[in-house]
């Protein structure tokens, strides 16, 4: 299935580190201020999007909205859902707080309300409600430089390659998120490697969720084979006793096999 979904293209070469994206995110999600310096903010249950200075670049971190999300695969109660529109959303009333999503996420995105007595998981939802109204995400609306661009994921990939073509030598010509973890709806281009900008290294083209599904898929086979095997062993082992008992007593003939 080809993901015809909305997404974002992040371009570090266009980012001036103004923090508009992070503050617009706070505004849309009605989140409190968590740092005096927007560039020093960390992702948390009250901050879903940050922009950090890494070396000589500004780099955004937020939920990548994976095409095959690990969080949605891991969640035992299906509290996470990859919607057709692109966002990975969270149905908070289902959550029981096991935090397996936080373990599973390769980007370390879901955050927890540790301080609360009825805590929930918090993360960016790609402004799913704004998308439903035909609006862009808050961050891409606020971005003054086009460092965060909103659009159809396929169009954004094309746009990224067009930027490579139009600006020879400006980019490390790799669109992070086309292949990684089976694809993400948030894509990143830069003049450096994403791994050097604080993004996780070693992600290949396999969605981690598939590593689990491969094993879960053989469970019905294990159950059926196991049941027959154990039943058979039980039958043979106990039959032997019955026969021995019958022969020993000489009173009844052995039953049919």
């Amino acid at each position: 299935m080809k993901p015809q979904t909305k997404g974002l293209l992040l371009d570090t070469t266009r980012c001036i580190g103004c923090g508009a994206c992070a503050l617009a995110c706070k505004e849309r999600n009605k989140l409190p201020k968590t740092s005096d310096d927007v560039l020093k903010d960390e992702l948390s249950d009250r901050t879903y999007s940050v922009v950090k200075q890494v070396g000589s670049r500004y780099v955004r971190r937020m939920c990548m909205h994976c095409v095959t999300p690990s969080c949605a695969s891991a969640c035992p109660v299906a509290a996470f859902e990859k919607t057709a529109a692109g966002p990975v959303i969270y149905h908070e009333s289902k959550c029981m707080g096991c935090r397996y999503c936080m373990i599973a996420c390769p980007f370390g995105i879901p955050k927890y309300e540790w301080e609360k007595k009825a805590p929930l998981v918090r993360k960016c939802d790609l402004c799913a409600d704004r998308l439903a109204q035909g609006l862009k995400t808050g961050c891409s609306t606020a971005c003054p430089t086009g460092a965060t661009t909103f659009g159809d994921r396929d169009a954004l990939v094309a746009e990224a390659r067009e930027r490579f073509r139009a600006n020879p030598g400006r980019y490390n010509e790799h669109v992070y998120g086309v292949e990684e973890v089976g694809g993400t709806s948030v894509l990143l281009i830069s003049d450096g490697k994403a791994e050097e900008l604080g993004y996780p290294a070693g992600l290949d083209g396999t969605a981690p969720a598939f590593l689990t599904w491969r094993v879960l898929n053989i469970i019905p086979d294990i159950v059926m084979t196991g049941a027959v095997l154990l039943g058979g062993i039980y039958w043979i082992r106990n039959r032997r006793d019955e026969v021995e008992a019958a022969e020993g007593s000489h009173h009844e003939t052995p039953k049919e096999h």
Binding site: A72, S73, A74, C75, P76, V77, A78, A79, K94, C95, M96, G97, C98, R99, Y100, Y112, E113, A118, P119, L120, A209, T212, W213, V215, L216, I219
Partner: peptide, 26 residues
């Protein structure tokens, strides 16, 4: 003790996600 919302511990029994190992373990 560990679950953030232990009163929802029964959820996997009615809110299914067959793709989740945790669901299967539950």
């Amino acid at each position: 003790f560990d679950l953030g919302r232990p009163w929802n511990i029964w959820h996997p029994l009615v809110m299914w996600n067959p793709h989740s190992v945790m669901f299967e373990v539950g």
